[in-house]
Nucleic acid binder design. Sequence first.
DNA 1: GTGAAAGCGCTAACAT
DNA 2: ATGTTAGCGCTTTCAC
Lengths: 334, 334
Amino acid sequence: MAQPTILDVAARAGVSKSLVSLVMRDSPSVSHAKREAVLAAAAELDYRPNAVARSLVQRRTRVLGILLSDLHNTFFADVLDGISARAAERGYKAMLNTGNRAPSGEADAIETLLELRADGLILTGPRLEVSRIVEAARAVPVVLVARTVTAGAVDCVSNDDVAGASLAVEHLVKLGHRRIAHIDGGAGAGAEARKQGYARTMRRHGLAGRARVARGDYTEEGGAQGVAALLARGPRPTAIFAANDLSAIGALDALTRRGLRVPDDVSVVGYDNTSVAGLRHIDLTTIDQPREAMGRTAVDLLLERLERRRKVARRVVMAPALVVRGTTAAPGDT
Amino acid sequence: MAQPTILDVAARAGVSKSLVSLVMRDSPSVSHAKREAVLAAAAELDYRPNAVARSLVQRRTRVLGILLSDLHNTFFADVLDGISARAAERGYKAMLNTGNRAPSGEADAIETLLELRADGLILTGPRLEVSRIVEAARAVPVVLVARTVTAGAVDCVSNDDVAGASLAVEHLVKLGHRRIAHIDGGAGAGAEARKQGYARTMRRHGLAGRARVARGDYTEEGGAQGVAALLARGPRPTAIFAANDLSAIGALDALTRRGLRVPDDVSVVGYDNTSVAGLRHIDLTTIDQPREAMGRTAVDLLLERLERRRKVARRVVMAPALVVRGTTAAPGDT
DNA sequence: GTGAAAGCGCTAACAT
DNA sequence: ATGTTAGCGCTTTCAC
């Protein structure tokens, strides 16, 4: 027999299928004897409840559909850890799908999750158009992580990029730096806010005149080009705040290749605290986003809609933290 | 209305639900007029076929259950790219679940996938006991990636670790190295084979007497300790082959911190070609496993069982490749 | 405490 | 070319 059904178990245990159903769901109103008989039969047959059939009749799957825009970025893996842990605690399963870094792939992935009747959706870092997101939200509750959208039906959880950038700059100022440059993240998610946080904090310290921004794009290459641009003209900055870790690493490498020492000649700060930042060989000072907490919060928001029937949108902004490592120090006497 | 059903569409289009079903599945035997009417009604209602109901009646889901042992390791993300691409090509959906690096988590994840009635399972790098894997294979076809098991019902796809290690050592020998040491991967997957490949190749070149192995464990820390052990006594090796990239990076860092230059004083080779290895700042020579191809192959193996009803186990071993970067060079005149 | 029966949304076999 | 009908494996009343 392919996969045994509840009827096979019932027959073998000599009871009705309703009784088997009650046992499988741990109902207290079953006699000890019958419960044992049913469990024995189930074990012998290698029976496994069919979640498909159960979902059909219950009209819900207890599955949360998770879209991860890019598995190659361990940032998302951390968010997922929080999501899975929380979902398990609350009796839900997390099923992932990826968009393979393409907006159209994301749309397909969401469609699949919706056809499989996930009870709700958590989209982490989606590059998808707003209209598609809102469309999905007509079918089930949707929570966005690491991306915000101002649409009534969608909840968002993100980190405070302005505050994070501020932490980075404050740290450098406290060390004594004044010529602090920024390599931005171009059109990337959160890049605009990080640039703003940088500019605002420089101004607050009366360093607006010293502020310099080089164009980047969240890539290693972008970070290297940012350094090239910054060194090409003007006084050399004593510190660089890059919009993310990858571009910070690109900057790091470009600096050392030019014979400049980090942090002796130039300090470098990144953003995200990805796992590479922690490698001793990189040892990058950076800004940490509370990734796991963001994942957990996303699940909580979703279940508020699912179980408590909340209707109004909520937007949760979480606080980032400074992680000091080896790429920052007081400026040398240049 | 919550989610419209096929009956809602049928009513609105003025046809029977079978007709709607045919249209949704692109049947050619539907008149143009009715097809348009149905599609219009479906669009207006925002109808989405219920995969749960469909799966129940078809007794298959067209879903492949994918277990990724650890999303934080981008190695698995690459394998997954291959899996998703291939699955999509062949009309299947890939649904992932992770074990959160714990064997018990993996067992739960598999159980979930089985209850959701995935048509087959691909387990990548599972740390799970063989017995549990065989057990799962009683329910549906199972393919293992990056782990082998000698059980009849399970297919495996892996890379040839012995050959990969051989490539690494051959590369170093060709550069002129003779004192080539190895930092092993302890009990990690494939570690034993890599060590064997190292030993065998050293012997083949008459360097068995020069072979030295330091204990590692696939971690950065392990790589650093390996270097410490190797430098503590005996003649300094001119080259080190580490069992994976992470430990190679640990070695790299330990070497430079001791004032040794790479590759001038010591060459270093890793294994896996993870994304960090490619960072300019690391620029590690390493062995590449054909990860995407492994993922694609896993899907093919699964579908051979699912669609062609293959019964005998297959074991596919794929060829690794050398990727030369900046951490290897001819030995200096030490 | 236990069983019988209805039905979840769909497909498939059969009629027409 | 289109409609009718009988389940898929389970949960959920409702009887007993």
